[in-house]
C-alpha cells in the first residue's frame, strides 16, 4: 500500500509547474510527464498550456486565469487546474 499526499487547490495561492514535470508542446496542447509519479497528463488546449507555463508570473492561480482566460471559460480552467494540482503537475510556491 503506497501513501499519497492529498493536496487541496487554493486558487488564491501562488502555484507553479512542478520541477519534476516535463512539458512537451503538441498540436492539441501539451503532454506533461511527472518523473516522480510516472503520471502522463494530456493538456488539451493551448490556452491551458499558456496558463500553466505562466502561473509562476502571477501572485495566484485566480490572477493568472483572470488575465489569460476569456470570461466564459474561467470556471472550466479553474477545474482543469484543480485536476493538475491533484496530479501533482502543479505545486504551491
Amino acid at each position: 500500500m503506497t501513501s499519497s499526499t492529498v493536496v487541496a487547490f487554493d486558487a488564491s495561492a501562488p502555484w507553479q509547474l512542478n520541477e519534476q514535470v516535463s512539458l512537451r508542446d503538441e498540436s492539441f496542447g501539451a503532454l506533461a510527464y511527472h518523473h516522480g509519479t510516472r503520471r502522463l497528463v494530456f493538456l488539451k488546449s493551448r490556452e491551458l498550456v499558456a496558463v500553466v507555463r505562466q502561473l509562476s508570473d502571477f501572485d495566484s492561480a485566480d490572477a493568472a486565469i483572470l488575465a489569460l482566460v476569456p470570461e466564459g471559460q474561467r470556471a472550466r480552467y479553474s477545474t482543469a487546474l484543480t485536476s493538475l494540482v491533484r496530479s501533482e503537475i502543479l505545486c504551491e510556491r
Binding site: R39, F42, L43, Y77, A80, S83, L84, S87
Partner: peptide, 10 residues
Amino acid sequence: ESEELLVEEV
C-alpha cells in the same frame, strides 16, 4: 461549439 475535458491523465 466547451464540454470537452481539458485534462486527461494516464
